[in-house]
Write a protein that binds this DNA or RNA. Structure first.
Length: 416
DNA sequence: TGTCCACTGGAAGGGAGGGCTT
DNA sequence: AAGCCCTCCCTTCCAGTGGACA
């Protein structure tokens, strides 16, 4: 084989076994530690389906990374195992963050019942009522039980209201032989307040709450996955404990814990280490946090990027604390330089609040007496990294090397 | 004690854009 | 294709305000 730049990487002993997806959230292991109770509970509800009856609708609550999706998918696999190829139970999983419109959900479900050679429901174009009717008609061809899982159901409700849920939850009245039950998964306990009371009671026939994992439980989970994902003996025992402890601090998020472990492993491997050590966990923590910030900045609208860029320039020229007026005049200057329309100060106030909520800046309202009331603004992300990300943007690039003319007014009323 | 700065942040409404309906 | 409705961004207008200063 020809020697390529990749050779050194391919040759070196890797820390991972073949399949490193085992540490990704999408992987569903053979058994789920510390979720026996929830599995039993949900299984007892779903068992009805195996007898050909309609299981109760279920609402599942729990914070991110508490195993909700994993348990539901796990039971999906179990059902498939016990029914074999007989398709008298349909298990349909929909993530409402991806499919988030009434039309999308109905079309998605409908198409599962339409054979490949038949006419599919198009992405768009049909009246929603027609999609619903087609779905009903196809579904009702056989006396089967359909379990529809709506993951992140709260996102759906916030975005498109509860019309779909209304239709889906009363679909059984319109079906002659088929039966439908719905499992809604949410990490927001309060989202049901936004539902019509009738829908609320129909959906919540059964309720389940997934508690967060504690550090010990997280350790067990990580241990199980680490054994599958890493070669023997390459992970220092304390690494698992630290990943678990860090994630336990953040409301017991198993997803976070696994991510830490995976990134730590990847960083160690990239450095051609023989072991994953504690240092790499902390490096992983930093990398994840930084990546997260970078992603937020990258997806900011142009106007907010300009605003942020202006604040960075100000800070680079030595002004620690800015007020709204300073930020606005720098922003205006930048806009004019590259010929972008200038938004009003009122609008900028709102954009600043957004940046504050995203944790990119820290802003608080202060009064300087005689000299008015304003926000005192500080960046709360590392300048160098933020700047690097901003300069990826085509529009910001044009400002490369720009020096600000209007320096923030030095605040002489400020006390130490 | 009152004044007045430099804003804040609410309210209302315009207009573009997207999706549904006719 | 046209009309309708909804949402998102944004503007305009403006009353309200904490506290340094005269």
């Amino acid at each position: 084989m020809e020697e390529t730049v990749f050779q050194t990487y391919l040759k070196s002993d890797t820390l991972f076994k073949k399949n490193r997806d085992i540490l990704r959230p999408s992987y569903i292991p053979e058994n789920l530690p510390h979720r026996d109770y929830q599995i039993d509970q949900l299984a007892s509800i779903l068992a009805t389906a195996l007898r050909g009856d309609r299981p109760s609708n279920v609402l599942i609550f729990g914070k991110t990374g508490t195993g909700k999706t994993a348990v539901v998918k796990f039971l999906g696999n179990e059902i498939k195992k016990s029914t074999g190829d007989m398709e008298n139970i349909q298990y349909i999983y929909i993530n409402c963050e991806v499919v988030d419109t009434q039309y999308g959900i109905l079309a998605n479900i409908g198409n599962r019942f339409i054979k490949d050679w038949e006419e599919h429901i198009p992405f768009t174009g049909w009246p929603t009522e027609k999609v619903y009717n087609r779905l009903k008609e196809k579904m009702d061809l056989e006396p089967r039980v359909t379990v529809i899982i709506l993951d992140e159901i709260d996102k759906l409700v916030y975005k498109s209201g509860d019309d779909v849920l209304y239709h889906l939850s009363k679909i059984n009245d319109d079906l002659k032989q088929a039966k439908v039950s719905i499992i809604g998964i949410s990490n927001d306990l309060k989202f049901t307040e936004f539902l019509d009371p009738r829908i609320k009671s129909r959906l919540g026939e059964e309720k389940m709450v997934f508690p967060p994992y504690n550090a010990q439980q997280l350790r067990d989970i990580l241990m199980q996955r680490a054994e599958l994902a890493f070669r023997e003996g390459v992970v220092e025992p304390s690494v698992i404990a630290i990943c678990a402890a860090l994630a336990a601090q953040e409301h017991g998020d198993a997803r976070r814990a696994l991510e830490l472990l995976r990134v730590a492993g990847e960083l160690a491997e990239r450095n051609k280490e023989k072991m994953v050590t504690e240092t790499y966990v902390y490096k992983a923590k930093n990398k994840i946090e930084l990546d997260c910030v970078a992603e937020v900045i990258r997806t900011l609208p142009t106007q907010s990027k300009l605003l942020l860029f202006g604040m960075i320039l100000n800070q680079e020229s030595g002004t620690e604390k800015l007020n709204t007026g300073d930020v606005y005049s720098t922003y205006k200057e930048l806009c004019k330089k590259i010929d972008v329309s200038v938004l009003t100060q009122r609008r900028i106030t709102d954009l600043l609040s957004e940046l504050d909520m995203l944790g990119i800046i820290h802003a608080r309202v202060i009064s300087k007496g005689r000299y008015g009331r304003t926000r005192e603004i500080q960046l709360s992300v590392p300048i160098v990294e933020a700047r690097k990300v901003l300069e990826e943007d085509e529009i910001i690039k044009e400002l490369y090397g720009h020096k600000i003319k209007i320096q923030a007014t030095l605040d002489f009323t400020q006390r130490t």
